[in-house]
Simulated assay, not measured.
Amino acid sequence: MSRPTTLHRTPHRPHAWLAWLAASQLAVAGLWWVAGWRWGLPALLLSHAAFIVPVFLPRATLYAPALSRLPGDERQVWLTIDDGPSDDTPAILDALDRHGMQATFFLVGQRAQARPELVREILRRGHGVANHTWSHPQAWFWALGPRAMAAQVERAQAVLGELAGQPPRWFRAVAGHTNPFLAAPLRRLGLARAAWSVRGYDAVDGDVVRVLQRLQRGLGPGAIVLLHEGAPHGRSVEIVEAALCLLREQGYASVIPE
């Protein structure tokens, strides 16, 4: 079942944060002038934190709008799988077929270019393909400047668009991080940012029981479920299979909002 296109929100004012920054610093300067450094310095630090902390919060929308949950009270979830394509992709596709579930694969452009047959197989089986940057720079994505950020988004979009026959409509940031330079390329390419509401930390934790416990705690109608493939612990296929079993046991269907 498709969702309304209003869920797909591209950034309309990529530089709106600048107005908030200027207003906050003027307010701090005024407070410092009137009340001195004892009040001005804490206000300065807090004002800077208000612009730094959202960089690391996956559902924060200061720098770009993000979809973190689907509307409605039906027992439906958006199942998303990050970091492919990988050696795990064929087995995950088989698991999705067995359980009658659809998913969106947030693919790394560099990996997709190296394994185009897996991208085509994902699409052939009725799943979605979305943009998860060109090279997945996990340690420093949050700190990219405007040119490097644009390259990460645009190169992946070009490769995935060529392989899929049409450009992706959704983007997921590495680790969910953003910064002031992400919104501009998203707007140029017509991309909407997807966050999540449920995660099991399966990219770093290979314990299936712990991952499922975390997933179960966050499940609810409209949840966006974050899973991964190709994790270093080597148990991604097992975890996805277990997550699909959990969803079926809980009576959830999957939906792709496109």
Rank of each mutant, 00 (worst) to 15 (best):
V53C: 13
P54Q: 05
V55F: 07
L57Y: 11
P58V: 05
P58L: 12
R59G: 05
T61K: 14
T61V: 11
Y63M: 06
A64S: 10
A64Y: 00
L67D: 08
R69W: 05
R69P: 08
R69I: 07
P71R: 10
G72R: 11
D73S: 14
E74S: 11
Q76W: 11
L79P: 10
D82N: 08
D82F: 10
D83A: 12
G84Q: 14
S86Y: 07
D87W: 03
T89W: 04
T89Q: 06
A91Q: 10
D94M: 01
D94R: 11
L96I: 00
L96H: 05
D97C: 09
H99T: 05
H99W: 09
G100P: 03
G100K: 06
G100N: 03
A103I: 10
L107D: 10
L107W: 04
Q110M: 10
A112H: 01
A112E: 01
Q113R: 15
Q113P: 01
Q113G: 15
R115A: 15
R115P: 01
R115D: 02
L118T: 03
V119L: 13
V119E: 11
R120M: 00
E121A: 15
E121S: 14
I122L: 05
R124V: 00
R125S: 01
V129A: 01
A130N: 07
N131R: 03
H132F: 10
H132T: 11
W134L: 10
W134S: 15
A139P: 04
A139T: 03
W140F: 15
W140Y: 15
F141D: 04
W142E: 10
A143K: 10
A143S: 12
G145C: 13
P146G: 02
P146R: 15
M149T: 08
A151W: 08
Q152P: 01
Q152W: 06
E154P: 04
R155N: 10
V159P: 02
L160K: 13
L160R: 07
L160W: 05
G161R: 11
G161H: 10
G161L: 15
E162Q: 14
L163Y: 13
L163C: 07
L163H: 09
G165L: 07
G165R: 02
G165C: 09
P167W: 06
R169Y: 01
